[in-house]
Design a protein around this nucleic acid. Structure first.
Length: 322
DNA sequence: AAGTTCCCCAACCGCGTTTCA
DNA sequence: TTGAAACGCGGTTGGGGAACT
């Protein structure tokens, strides 16, 4: 009963693919297509697992793939989609022609997360760190609030020290704060001090300790004085100049606090293999699936609702290729 | 120039769902 | 109907090159 195994594990080659292997796989698929991954390595004369062949094809060999650097427009799209979809890379990739989920995941983990952190924005929630501090503080009783600064510092200090010692923050952040920057609270946030001293100099002269103390102080202020959080919307809700080369567009799915985050009000839940179809389930606050419990069978339907989730033109979000 | 550390990304791993004998 | 394998996804790892000391 059941299927036969996809490959004999002992005779399977692993690791980097050679150009010859790539040629064999590409030419075989060009002739026969990708119908059965279990048979492809055997028929193509490859000592590879079918799964390995599939990954190599989808992530590297497919002729419609882009291999160059991500454009600023692509990065902005990734950030906007990530704010709504989270780490659902296949869904995000479906909106970026020629990019794979692996590509986007790697780019997010190596570049975009750091850029956001450097801007004082939590890459998970896409809100400013100080806003998060204030939100947490409002949910805790006074004794707990007293300990929050230390806890928060523990969470963020590694990342901050990394930025302080390794990365120069973009000069746009270093310029004197403008009124619009005040809206996003970057200038007021403890992370604004990233720019107070050249990173390498700070690392050399041992001012880390002083900097950590300043971060502590800034976090304390954010907690004790939530009023300094001018907007309780995520950073891109308020108008702002480009920061580090990015400019978030308005984002109407994230509304004010009383409306809650998109995850509490309209949660996207994974349907695993259904994801290949771009499926999402929308749930209300009671965990009930909206839309009569029907799955949305295509990502595009998400973007075609009357409720505009973001202000990208809908045609930019459609990728018929994938 | 040599050694060390950091960073990127291709490839692998493990899990949940779907397929099919 | 059953259960093993295929499939597809997100998370993680490690090799190799770049940057730094």
């Amino acid at each position: 009963m059941g299927r036969i195994p996809c490959c004999e594990k002992e005779n399977v080659k692993r690791g980097q693919w050679t150009p010859e292997e790539d040629n064999k796989l590409s030419s075989y698929i060009a002739q026969h297509g990708t119908r059965n991954w279990r048979l492809i390595p055997k028929n193509a004369g490859l000592q590879r697992c079918g799964k390995s062949c599939r990954l190599r094809w989808t992530n590297y060999l497919r002729p419609d793939l882009k291999h160059g650097q991500f454009t600023q427009a692509e990065e902005e799209t990734i950030m906007k989609l990530h704010a709504v979809l989270g780490n659902r890379w296949s869904l995000i990739a479906a909106q970026l022609p020629g990019r794979t989920d692996n590509d986007i995941k790697n780019h997010w983990n190596t570049k975009l997360k750091k850029k956001l952190t450097g801007m004082g924005i939590d890459p998970v929630t896409h809100k400013t760190f100080s806003h998060l501090m204030a939100e947490i503080a409002t949910t805790l009783g006074p004794p707990q609030v007293a300990n929050l600064t230390e806890a928060a510092l523990g969470c963020f200090k590694d990342e901050m020290l990394h930025l302080l010692t390794k990365h120069r923050v973009d000069s746009q952040l270093q310029q004197p704060s403008t009124s619009s920057q005040a809206n996003v609270n970057i200038a007021n946030s403890p992370y604004a001090m990233i720019n107070s001293k050249p990173d390498h100099q700070a690392a050399k002269d041992g001012t880390h300790v002083d900097t950590v103390e300043k971060i502590k102080l800034g976090l304390s202020r954010a907690i004790q004085e939530p009023s300094i959080i001018i907007s309780n919307k995520p950073c891109w809700e308020a108008p702002q100049p480009p920061v580090n080369g990015f400019q978030y567009a308005g984002h109407s799915s994230f509304r004010s606090q009383e409306e809650g985050s998109p995850w509490s009000q309209s949660k996207c839940t994974r349907t695993t293999a259904g994801d290949q179809m771009g499926n999402l389930k929308l749930e209300d606050e009671n965990g009930q699936e909206s839309d009569g419990g029907k799955e949305i069978r295509n990502t595009s339907s998400i973007f075609n609702t009357d409720c505009v989730l973001w202000d990208l033109p809908s045609d930019e979000l459609m990728n018929p290729m994938i």
